[in-house]
Simulated scan of single mutants.
Amino acid sequence: MIHFMEIKAVIFDRDHTLLYFDQAQLAALEENIAVIAPELPPHAAVRAWSSWPGPWPQHRDDEPAFWAEFWAGLGHAHGLQPAQILSLTNDVGAIYHTTFGAYPDAAPTVRALRSGGIRLAILTNYELPSVDLTLAHAGIDPSLFDIALTSAMLGVYKPDSRAYLAAAAALDLPPSACLFVDDLAENVAAARSVGMPAYQIDRSLPVDNLDAARISTLDTLIGLLLPPSTRD
């Protein structure tokens, strides 16, 4: 049973919880790549990303060097010219964050919770530290979040228990005072295993199933965590 009066913070997953991958923007990104480097096979960049051995950047300032190394490796593997590699680095790497959109319930829920005195955090398995850029582009104010932790920054991925404990420690709160929300059942179960209350967000549900700790929309959290007098 979740004791809602004890919850001081909500820790959100990002992908498929707050944000989704905008397929139209992803297609536009692929088209941009094809214009710059028609020699690249379709989806070559996606495959290279999925198989990237690391290391991933741990700080925003490290990202330009990462993109330079990423596109240089891909470009050399496919015989691209230096000018093409430079263009991919500068033109494509700089707009990756634009491939994300926000679910309609995300920004209003985040604003309401923060206005109601609930602290906010993000714990994501996303590799790049520029989480703030993806949020801002999608229309969610990144300044509303106390912390945003990525797998690369932590050195572990959810559902590793250390990820949840690190997020709670960064908020200077016990796990029991943090509510975790994720779209994957295994990540939710792992949060509960360290004493952190958790809900799975499943937008395919017609209604919430609170007994099973599954919610169909993020704005359910407003009703659960905020007294009526503090709701927008």
Rank of each mutant, 00 (worst) to 15 (best):
A190S: 14
H3D: 15
P129N: 08
V110R: 09
M5K: 14
L113W: 01
L226F: 01
A138N: 01
A65F: 07
A168Y: 02
V46T: 15
S143E: 12
W56T: 02
A136E: 13
L184Y: 13
P42M: 05
N209T: 14
P104D: 14
D182S: 08
R203T: 12
R47A: 13
D15A: 12
A112S: 15
V46Y: 14
W56F: 13
I215W: 03
F100D: 08
G93Q: 06
A44H: 08
H137Q: 03
S130M: 01
G101S: 02
H43S: 11
A34D: 10
L113P: 02
H97S: 12
P57F: 11
M196D: 05
T150D: 09
V92F: 04
V131S: 00
G116R: 05
L86Y: 05
L133V: 00
R60D: 15
A138V: 00
A191C: 04
A24D: 11
A163D: 04
P53S: 07
M196R: 08
P142W: 00
L218Y: 10
G195D: 13
D183H: 01
L120E: 08
A198C: 07
L123D: 08
F100L: 10
D160G: 07
R14D: 00
A152D: 08
T89E: 11
L133C: 04
V46F: 15
N209W: 12
A28W: 04
R214I: 13
L205K: 11
D172R: 15
L120W: 09
R111E: 14
P159E: 09
D202Y: 13
T109Y: 09
A166S: 15
A168T: 01
A121K: 06
L18N: 02
Y96P: 00
L74R: 09
T17L: 05
R47Q: 13
V181M: 01
R119G: 09
F4S: 12
I140W: 01
L210V: 15
I201T: 01
L40M: 03
Y199R: 09
L184M: 15
S216Y: 06
S151T: 07
E39F: 00
F100N: 07
R214W: 03
V10W: 10
A136M: 04
L171N: 10
Y20A: 05
L171E: 10
A212K: 15
P55H: 07
L40S: 03
A45G: 00
D211Y: 09
